[in-house]
């Protein structure tokens, strides 16, 4: 599979050079692999740090900026960053009021952030962590590593970021982040696997009429293989899975997210079905995102994330944000 890169080894560094050139509001260290706000930490504000493997762009670096993250540390493709990066990111985010780590629930991310938290705590920084685990395709049981963190990460980063920007304490920002996660569920569908630059071949093969239901964001196959259906049915499958795990009602923030190689026109087709079917289930789409937010390299497919809103969360969602990938209000 052809890719617009210089080499598999330099792809993350090169992309960070591009990010740096495109966004003067970011301070980017392409070699050290950290991205932070160019103004440095905001004194007195709780810092927000996230990170994870690369290949999910714009997550996380594209969400660094006013009203969202203070710093991000991108790892190798699909590989959790190392504690050293997280320590640097923490320093860039630490305004003296503590730092919250937004951690997607993957063994690698969890372990590395734990090690980083220990190191930073030793340095006297107050660290809290929130684990994002919204993916209903994985059974959350003693027999798994728990549900994966996927689309809800964007919601957690935006809403907790707004709380932090508004002056909330570390405990309060953490509580808000946990609440967003608790109220959010995701389900993803792949029409094709993705190909990592290093391997050059798709991580799994799907036939002309095959799809994977319940995929993750690291090229792993899903809960089950199935046959291709129209957008309406796929939306129903995703919403059923979400609804079964968290009964849906009231106002919702809904994201239809592209996996990296899905044309926007198709995402809008899916969103039309999602919105209509949510209405049929008595849920009002109060806020929405349609586009590529948490991707899996060049995977074709989509994920649906639903977050049940209340007034506070809606207000925090609406608060100004200024990042490369999400911007309004300024």
């Amino acid at each position: 599979v052809k890719k617009l890169i210089n080499s598999a080894e330099t792809v993350v560094t090169d992309a960070l050079r591009g990010l740096s050139a495109a966004h003067p509001g970011l301070r980017v260290d392409p070699d050290g692999r950290t991205v932070s706000r160019s103004g440095g930490p905001t004194p007195g504000k709780v810092g927000l740090v996230s990170g994870g493997g690369s290949g999910h762009e714009p997550l996380h670096a594209g969400f660094v900026g006013y009203g969202m993250l203070d710093a991000a540390c991108p790892g190798e493709i699909f590989t959790s960053p190392v504690p050293g990066q997280m320590v640097t990111a923490t320093a860039a985010a630490d305004g003296g009021a503590g730092v919250l780590y937004v951690v997607k629930n993957y063994t690698g991310d969890v372990l590395n952030f734990e090690l980083a938290a220990d190191l930073c705590a030793e340095e006297g920084v107050e660290i809290a962590s929130v684990l994002v685990d919204d993916d209903v395709a994985v059974r959350d049981s003693l027999h798994t590593a728990g549900r994966r963190g996927t689309g809800a990460t964007v919601f957690v980063e935006k809403i907790a970021g707004a709380a932090a920007e508004g002056g909330a304490s570390l405990a309060e920002v953490t509580r808000v982040a946990e609440e967003v996660n608790a109220r959010s569920r995701s389900f993803g569908v792949a029409l094709s696997a993705c190909t990592t630059p290093a391997s050059g071949r798709p991580t799994f093969e799907l036939g002309e009429t095959e799809i994977e239901l319940g995929i993750g964001i690291h090229g792993e196959p899903g809960r089950s293989r199935s046959t291709m259906r129209d957008a309406r049915e796929l939306a129903a499958i995703a919403l059923d899975a979400v609804d079964e795990d968290m009964p849906l009602s009231g106002d919702a923030l809904v994201m239809v997210n592209g996996m990296g190689a899905t044309p926007l026109i198709e995402l809008y087709v899916v969103f039309a079905e999602v919105a209509e079917q949510l209405a049929g289930r008595g849920v009002r789409v109060a806020r929405s995102l349609v586009g590529d937010y948490v991707t899996s390299l060049d995977m074709r497919g989509f994920s649906v994330t639903v977050c049940l809103l209340d007034e506070d969360l809606t207000r925090l969602w609406d608060a100004p944000v200024e990042t490369p990938a999400l911007r309004w209000g300024r």
Binding site: S80, V82, G108
Partner: peptide
Amino acid sequence: LISRVGGASGPL
């Protein structure tokens, strides 16, 4: 290994 690998296997 911890400072260079990342992922699950690095810390482990």
